[in-house]
Nucleic acid binder design. Structure first.
Lengths: 269, 269
DNA sequence: CAATCTTTGTGCACGCGTTCACAAAGGCAT
DNA sequence: ATGCCTTTGTGAACGCGTGCACAAAGATTG
């Protein structure tokens, strides 16, 4: 979603499209489930359904990895699990540090999804001296002062930032200076990082806002449809305070008409 | 990222590209920061830098909303904040429910990002009877039995799923049946939902795996570079257990060669 | 009022990702 | 061994998103 830069064209061969890489974990999860049920083989159609994608897309994705299927039969589940794991680099151990042990950081530390699949939480780091030494998820929280030492001693190359927004940029700089080259950022800020460092962003607030947009659009369409056909019921859920704008062009007008004084102070932070 | 279907072409006019919608919250955040600093206007260049995007892209994004800028000057911050808020539907109140009050659910309930920006946590719901009544983030957890009632009474149209993977599909079905039309899914599962329901997915494990892929690729390139120029230092961070594969074509060979017996049991769940 | 300078809004081209549709490949039954 | 049937792997077309580059628009200065 938010990888800082396009990856340098060097070593362009072997280039697996970014979109494909993003789907490999999905396939892997579906395959793991099949593997646990001892299913020996799957067709692209079945696996695609399980992963929630188009079967043609899945086949094309796999074609970037090599020719792993058997025509007329499908894919060997175990073999594919191994190949994708290897491709994603999950056959090796990835120590990660979590910086910022607040609500979210603690939840992440406790989250099973980390420890599974080759990721090992090497350290929990927080700037609050009161947190230092306190156990979270069975591990003592360490102070930010030791960040560099921790990174280097554990050979950490992946960092997770769960600090408040204000601290995130500085933390990222320290992580990077200490050797981290991949960052998963939960803080609601845009991190600016040097080339060669990958940043992925997880932002709850943004996701919700995108949903709100679609929600509003649905409500608008529904209102328009209801206006056209007033007899029918309201359909889905009625929005709470359905301040549905007159549903239509009103955007383009109004603008520039009112002075800037009419702008209500919208939302705190 | 994971919106189920392309949105129906009906009411295609006004159609703001999905990619643009996804960036609007970013712009809004940057604008809000400027607004707090009482900055009256911004150029596309400045704002783009703050949001971490290309300025041409930003201008094109804004052009979908209308012509809100003043040539030679830039954009009026307050006015733009209002316009984007309205476009995203943030001028109205969106009650949300969080289902699954475990580690993550509790952290989400406490997370400030929800209450800000027009989203109000209407209820916390959990299937564990022992949780019922317990206060989390200053709010009593309610039992799943009352899910439908809660949704309807509060006019909730956005649901957040933070349950274990096994429960997610069923929860989503109940939410949808009760009237929810947008879901933010934190459970590591593919939800299958009817048309007209938007699903967005946040999956920590997937994000980490994507980072691992790039990490591995960087390590491989670095090893290749080091091989070519053995005198230089290792550059960035040395991967922990650098089981760097012979760095090259090895993928295409080996396959089909070994029997399926050599596949190690990779990762638990 | 005219000239200059800044910044927007957008036409255009390019590249990536998705999807269709089908030939090639392999298993399986007869 | 031969033919049929299933499923893969991929060529090709299409559409979306991105970024360049520039003309139009407005402010500002003399």
């Amino acid at each position: 979603m938010a990888t800082g830069r396009t990856h340098r064209p060097a070593t362009r061969s072997r280039g697996i499209p970014e979109a494909t890489v993003a789907r490999l974990p999905l396939y892997l999860r579906a395959l793991t489930a099949l593997s646990e049920r001892s299913v020996p083989t799957v067709s692209s159609e079945e696996l695609a359904a399980a992963a929630g994608v188009n079967s043609a897309k899945l086949r094309k994705d796999f074609s970037y990895l090599g020719s792993y299927g058997t025509r007329g039969v499908g894919y060997d589940v175990e073999y594919l699990v191994y190949q994708i794991s290897r491709e994603l680099g999950l056959t090796q151990d990835w120590p990660v540090v979590i910086v910022g042990i607040g609500n979210l950081g603690a939840a992440l530390a406790n989250y099973g999804g980390f420890s599974a699949r080759g990721f090992r939480v090497a350290a929990l780091i927080d700037a609050d001296p009161a947190m230092a030494g306190k156990p979270v998820a069975g591990m003592a929280v360490q102070h930010t002062d030791d960040l560099e030492k921790i990174i280097e001693e554990n050979g950490v190359s992946i960092g997770v930032i769960a600090t408040p927004a204000g601290a995130a940029q500085q933390v990222s700089e320290r992580l990077i200076a200490a050797g981290v080259t991949s960052i998963l950022n939960f803080a609601p800020t845009v991190l600016s990082v040097p080339d060669g460092v990958d940043v992925r962003k997880v932002d709850l607030s943004i996701e919700l806002q995108i949903l709100a947009f679609h929600e509003q659009r649905k409500a608008g369409e529904e209102a328009a449809a209801a206006a056209a056909e007033p007899g029918s019921a309201a359909g889905g859920a009625a929005p709470a305070a359905a301040v549905v704008p007159p549903a239509g062009r009103t955007a383009a007008e109004a603008r520039k008409g009112g002075p800037e004084g009419d702008v209500p102070a919208v939302m705190p932070a």
